[in-house]
Simulated assay, not measured.
Amino acid sequence: MPLIEWKAGYSVGHRDLDADHENLVELINTLHESWENGEDLDVLHGIFGELLMYTDYHFQREERLLEEMAYPALDKQREEHAALRARVQDFRARHLAEPNPVLTVEIEDFLKTWMMSHILEEDMRYKPLFEARRPSET
């Protein structure tokens, strides 16, 4: 059973960012399912690394697009992204140093809560910028 169910209502109005968000949800679900299935720690570390790399890729894309749109809250968005990067890197370092089930549940809960609250609160604030553009542009 997936940790997060993707819904069309999570769309931020830009196809690439929506695809990124859906991919991030899928990676979180893969991490969750791999842990639930008792995958080897090397597999979990690999998925976690992929999640971190894709998160960085997405944040760079999102920040670049928002900069092009002159999004007034871009600095706040960058701060949110930096805070998440630091928190996820801390989780990963702790997990690599001493893996345990409690930490993994903590990671999953954090990723689920952050991902959904970030999309549904922070990212939805820029949705009107993309909705105002012609459909061929988003």
Rank of each mutant, 00 (worst) to 15 (best):
T138E: 03
S11W: 00
R78C: 12
L111E: 01
M1A: 13
G38L: 04
L65N: 11
I47C: 15
F48E: 02
Y54E: 08
D90T: 14
M53E: 10
H32S: 14
E62T: 09
R92K: 05
E131N: 14
I107T: 02
S117K: 07
L129Q: 06
L3F: 05
I28H: 02
A83H: 03
M124C: 09
V105A: 10
Y54W: 07
F48H: 05
D56T: 12
D18V: 11
V105H: 05
E22S: 07
H95A: 15
L74A: 10
P72R: 12
W114V: 03
T104A: 14
N29W: 05
L44M: 08
L103E: 06
Q89C: 06
A93S: 15
N100F: 02
R134L: 13
G13E: 03
G13Q: 02
K76G: 13
E122W: 00
M115G: 06
R133W: 08
V25W: 00
P101W: 01
P99N: 03
D109C: 08
D123P: 00
L27M: 15
M116G: 11
Y71I: 14
L74W: 01
A82T: 13
D40N: 13
K112T: 10
L74R: 01
F130C: 06
A83G: 13
L31H: 02
M115R: 00
A86F: 03
D75S: 14
N23H: 08
N29Q: 07
R134G: 12
M1P: 14
T104Y: 09
E50C: 09
S117Q: 05
W6V: 15
L44Y: 01
P101S: 12
N29K: 01
H118D: 03
Q60G: 06
F130V: 13
H21Q: 01
E137K: 04
P72H: 09
F130A: 11
S11M: 01
P135S: 08
E108P: 00
G49C: 11
H14Y: 07
P2W: 02
W114N: 05
L120Q: 11
D42H: 03
Y57V: 12
H58N: 08
L120S: 15
Y10V: 00
R94E: 15
K76A: 14
R87K: 10
W35T: 02
E80D: 15
E39T: 06
N23S: 12
D18F: 06
I4R: 01
E106D: 12
L65H: 08
E106F: 01
N100H: 04
R133T: 13
L24V: 07
E80V: 06
R61T: 05
R94H: 07
E36I: 06
E5R: 10
E79R: 10
N100R: 04
S117A: 07
S34Q: 12
M53L: 08
L129G: 04
V43Y: 05
A8D: 11
H118T: 09
